[in-house]
Amino acid sequence: MLADIKAVAFDIDGTLYPSLSLYWRLVPYIIRHFRFYLHYNKVRKIMHRTAPLPDFYEYQARLLASELGCSSKRARAMIKLIAYDGLKKYFSKIKSFKNVLETFKTLHEKGYKIALLSDFPPEQKNEIWGVIPYCDLILGTEKIGALKPSKYPFGIMAMALDLKPEQILYVGNSIKFDVLGANNAGMKSALIVSPFKKIFSKKIKVADISFSNYRQFLNIVIQS
């Protein structure tokens, strides 16, 4: 099933690190910026359904400006300050899932191309837990013009890797955005789930593979 895979691409948030590690640290921050996030989350839901845009950031700012009753320039500055730059310091305190770095290093040594494709700016995560040297490509969907699950950013990634979509395995933690987005773009998909969910839930049929730790994931890919 994975014999033809020549590249492995990863989501970042909730895929390379546990989401809860970030969420509990952000509680005071979210409370402090509650009004912003109340409206910003509404805007992001719309952006996830929006077709590719020539200027993603401007359209996002206009939507938020309408919600907040301010200028788009002001809304754009708030997004940068609160949603992008304001979160950087929190990622420096978060550890990746166990064996993430080992997984990237081994895939690189085995000759796979490696990519990151994230809905939020990859540079927001600072050094991304040391995986950057092993990556052939790092993309943010916002700069491309469309968020997942649009197949557009997946297609751009495939073109940049100079591979056919079916030669790429995309790894994420969301069925709706990562798995279905990759599947619709013609890629193979892998879903990371908690060990508890892995044991007690039914087989996840929409993803080509599911796993609960990166040692397990690496064994599946290498042995395919």
Rank of each mutant, 00 (worst) to 15 (best):
L2G: 14
A7I: 09
D13G: 15
T15P: 12
L20I: 15
I31R: 15
I31Q: 13
R35T: 12
L38M: 12
V43W: 07
R44Q: 14
F56R: 04
F56T: 10
Y57D: 15
Y59C: 02
A61L: 08
S72A: 14
A75S: 13
R76I: 01
R76F: 05
I79Q: 11
Y84T: 03
D85F: 07
I94Y: 12
K95W: 02
K95E: 15
K98R: 14
V100C: 07
L101D: 01
T106V: 11
G111T: 04
Y112P: 01
I114N: 06
A115P: 08
P121T: 00
P122R: 03
E123I: 02
Q124S: 11
V131H: 04
D136F: 02
L137G: 01
K143Y: 04
F154H: 06
G155A: 04
G155Y: 02
M157C: 09
M159L: 08
L161C: 03
L161S: 06
P165W: 13
Y170W: 04
G172S: 06
K176G: 00
F177Q: 08
D178P: 06
K188R: 15
I192V: 12
V193M: 14
P195V: 01
I204Q: 13
V206A: 12
F211T: 06
N213G: 02
R215Y: 03
Q216M: 10
N219K: 15
V221A: 01
